[in-house]
Design a protein around this nucleic acid. Structure first.
Lengths: 189, 189
DNA sequence: GTCTATAACACGATAGAC
DNA sequence: GTCTATCGTGTTATAGAC
């Protein structure tokens, strides 16, 4: 199978540390200590601290964009698309708890790739909003402000990485179902 | 009236910078430059960088706790209490856009006061959850997982500081009304 | 692949002049 | 209240031995 390279191991360990303290507060010495080696040894596997951040964030951002493009191009109803978006977030977040923290909180520390990241994120939000606006036109969705709907859904989905580890008894499928119910149908009886 | 002291001016400026780059990535030199003075001059008004963070976060955390205690002690229905919580977040977030960023993202960099902050936050979440569980018992709220309901509402409310500045046309009252509709009644028609 | 040693610089904070 | 100068330490990253 695919062997875990030392580089991948460093990136995973870094993601864990970034989740707790943020990119800026984690030093290469912290990372090296977590790996059980000296800081200078890290540079045989990675080029810079910045490269680690890039590897964590860009791959995740591209995964979300690819998922959204797939959902967008389907012929499903608006409601089905929204449920698919929820499943997309639950799935990627479950598989990348640590990386999601960097994606949410440390993207501003990207240097070369900041512009590219912002383009991906803006595109994602544009696509999300279009789905909601279509649902409003179709009368699938109520006449509330589409931006408030997207804001509410997206911030909940973006914070999943914080809550999934606390609720390990809830599997991805059940979480997605429960979340769809709450986000789409509300909470009142 | 209350004059804005130099110390308060420094804390406000710091909060703005912390929102963009996070506590760890903002240097005292950055802060001084933003104030139009030298870094050493800051220390005539504040004791340390840490004291600035403390001033921003603890006052906000205590404001939320006080608001929650007031809501909790009322005799209103669960739904009314939830609407009051939404109004609480919209109000405090509108008045402290920059500080809310630190409250959400930089609390882990508190030193002496970290434990106290965590106690306040845990208490807030416990009170929030109790209101939802009572609503479920009263059949005001549907039989969904109360923790998922709280998670969804709270993450949306905690992210308000990011969205309020983008929607300056929407006043606090309208935002709270729209948000209540979406969070409580859902989005489907 | 890891080490020791170190370069080159940035950090928070202080001392003391004005 | 702000300045210049500086201390002591921490930072990313490199050089070269093993």
């Amino acid at each position: 199978m695919k062997p875990i390279t030392r580089k991948e191991e460093i990136i995973r360990t870094a993601a864990k540390l970034f989740k707790d303290k943020g990119y800026s507060a984690v030093t290469m010495r912290d990372l090296a200590t977590s790996m059980g080696i000296k800081a200078s040894s890290l540079y045989n596997h990675i080029n810079s601290k910045q490269d680690i951040l890039k590897a964590i964030i860009i791959s995740l951002a591209e995964e979300f964009t690819a998922g959204m493009k797939l959902i967008q191009s389907s012929n499903d109803s608006c409601m089905s698309k929204l449920k698919a978006i929820i499943e997309l977030h639950v799935r990627i977040s479950s598989e990348n708890i640590y990386g999601m923290a960097s994606l949410n909180n440390d993207w501003m520390h990207l240097e070369d790739q900041l512009e590219y990241y912002l383009k991906l994120r803006q595109g994602y939000e544009d696509d999300f909003l279009k789905i909601i606006e279509n649902g409003k036109s179709n009368a699938e969705i109520k006449a509330a402000n589409p931006e408030i709907i997207m804001f509410s859904m997206l911030t909940t989905l973006r914070s999943l990485y914080l809550w999934i580890p606390k609720k390990e008894d809830l599997n991805a499928k059940d979480l997605a179902i429960n979340l769809s119910e709450v986000l789409i149908h509300g909470i009142n009886k």
